[in-house]
Write a protein that binds this DNA or RNA. Structure first.
Length: 471
RNA sequence: GGUUCCGUAGCUCAACUGGAUAGAGCAUCUGCCUUCUAAGCAGACGGUUUUGGGUUCGAGUCCCAACGGAAUCACCA
């Protein structure tokens, strides 16, 4: 229920790209998204909307749905802090005040009523969730990310609770005096972990147990289940996987947490509450605008229609962003400077796109001139050292895909593509094609250009980056 | 404090999983557009791979320690 930010972009681009790479390596991939539509956080937005919203809706405010709901999440947090501070002034300890703030109690009560299927609460929940999905949907479309199946935690938490009940029966879990349910994982170095609150409501872990089990039964015979989630949740997934094993769930051994590093801003890490986040929608828009400015300045595409230009600016701007986020090893945290980070020259997607466009443009001219553009039966003896080096680079592609798939690492694909493009760009500089008089040499160069262009397009496709025809 | 991860050019990142002279981009400086798109190319500058030990024929990579940074250890998700 918080608007998508830069961290989500890294997450989604990474997950999407890994899926494409695994497919390229011959695996069948099912992309699923778990939607966290249940829990105390939703109730917080709901309470704040009830109290301060005055019936505001996306259409009445003109705000994107997820932004509107996010606004009330922030409003909740502000009110909550004020109330807690007042209680402290009234003589309560800070710890106690954080538990007793009236607005928090209201949110907890809403969660409880929601789990009891209280009609009024469920209605509001449906409405506000609808706004969020609507907003997220727009952003996902822009990102070029899609899923084969969506899981809603509101559908899976009950399954999780069943599992907790079963685990309690079999002695995997235990109940404390206040009625809360726990698992003891000290032997694994993971401490005690809560599975059900004392009021009987589910927590994050409960839902994830349910979701995991549902997926095993939905897709029997899964070779591997990969969770693309930030490294801040490493502990959570260690615990989850351990619990699933202890419950004896079939397939529990096949889980993998694809853990990626945080995106940090120059002033430190992003914090929604302090407003130091880079909003996904804003950033995407800014990227396309930068591409527009750049192209307008260069003036090479003035004859394109407005529609064609819009497509192009998104290809270039979004491509630059995707490449920027994917060229770094997933496990590493990365720094992002909104003003300086994203370049359109150097080791970037626009550089690669530019060279693809040059190749495509040149091939089109060869076509027009009636040259032999077939890649069959060419004379390989004419290649010089630069060309052999370029070919050598291109031949590393299959191994690169295999390694990237094995390690779930799109940065290997990005770096290979850059090296290939760099080699091509260098070669292009002093190896004319159209003006080459020796037909054998010319045909060999045409074939080479075709192969390189094709590989660039394929490789960038695995990163979710489109190649324009002109730029 | 426990656990996990990280430390490579001024900045952002590579380094084919232990191999030869540690490579790119940005930034700075110098050249190259009457020739297939200059969002390009060539060159210069920039390194005791945080530090100290160890293993090895060989270490940025593996082990130990120190220093520095991050994440996590919630009846948040």
């Amino acid at each position: 229920n918080k608007p998508l930010h830069l961290g989500h972009l890294r997450n989604n681009f990474l997950g999407y790209s890994v899926a494409r790479i695994l497919e390229a390596a011959g695996h069948e991939v099912i992309k699923v998204q778990i939607i966290n539509d249940r829990g105390i956080h939703i109730c917080k937005s709901m309470v704040a909307w009830q109290k301060f919203g005055n019936g505001e809706t996306p259409s009445s405010s003109g705000l994107k749905g997820d932004k509107l709901v996010g606004k009330y999440y922030v409003a909740f947090d502000r009110a909550y802090k004020e109330e807690a501070a007042e209680l402290v002034t009234g003589g309560m300890t800070e710890e106690e005040a954080k538990k007793q703030a009236p607005i928090l109690l209201e949110a907890q009560s809403l969660l409880h009523r929601w789990e009891q299927s209280d009609a009024e609460v469920v209605d509001l929940w449906k409405t506000m969730n609808g706004w969020v999905y609507d907003g997220f949907g727009k952003t996902y479309t822009e990102m070029g990310v899609d899923f084969d199946k969506l899981y809603y935690e509101s559908d899976t938490y009950l399954l999780g609770k069943d599992q907790v009940a079963a685990g309690l029966e079999s002695g995997v879990f235990f109940k404390k005096d206040d009625g809360s349910v726990w698992i003891e994982l000290s032997d694994e170095g993971l401490d005690e972990k809560l599975l059900l609150r004392k009021d009987g409501t589910a927590v994050y872990m409960t839902q994830d147990i349910g979701t995991a089990i549902l997926r095993y039964s939905d897709f029997p015979g899964l070779e591997r289940q990969i969770y693309t989630v930030g490294n801040e949740q490493e502990y959570h997934f260690k615990v989850l996987f351990t619990i699933l094993k202890k419950l004896g769930v079939e397939g529990a051994e096949k889980n993998h947490h694809l853990s990626y590093g945080m995106v940090e801003l120059p002033e430190g890490k992003m914090k929604s509450r302090e407003g130091t986040v880079v909003d996904a929608d804003d950033l995407l828009e800014e990227m396309a605008n930068t591409a527009r400015e750049m192209a307008t300045e260069l003036g090479k595409i003035d004859d394109l229609s407005e529609e064609e230009k819009d497509v192009l600016f998104k290809q270039v701007g979004y491509g630059a962003l995707k490449y920027f986020l994917l060229k770094v090893s997933p496990t590493k945290s990365m720094r992002f400077d909104p003003k300086a980070s994203i370049d359109f020259i150097g080791n970037t997607a626009p550089f690669i796109q530019f060279n693809y466009v040059r190749a495509a443009s040149m091939l089109a001219k060869c076509e027009e001139a009636g040259f032999n553009t077939s890649t069959e039966s060419l004379d390989a003896s004419v290649w010089d050292v630069d060309e052999l080096r370029l070919i050598q680079q291109a031949l590393m592609w299959p191994a690169t895909v295999e390694l990237a798939a094995a390690q779930y690492d799109p940065s290997l694909v990005a770096n290979h593509t850059y090296d290939l493009t760099k080699a091509f760009s260098r070669w292009y500089q002093d190896h004319p094609v159209l003006g080459e008089e020796n037909a054998a040499v010319r045909d060999a160069r045409i074939a080479l250009t075709q192969c390189v262009a094709h590989q660039i397009k394929t490789a960038m496709g695995l990163l979710g980056i489109d190649m324009p025809k002109r730029m």
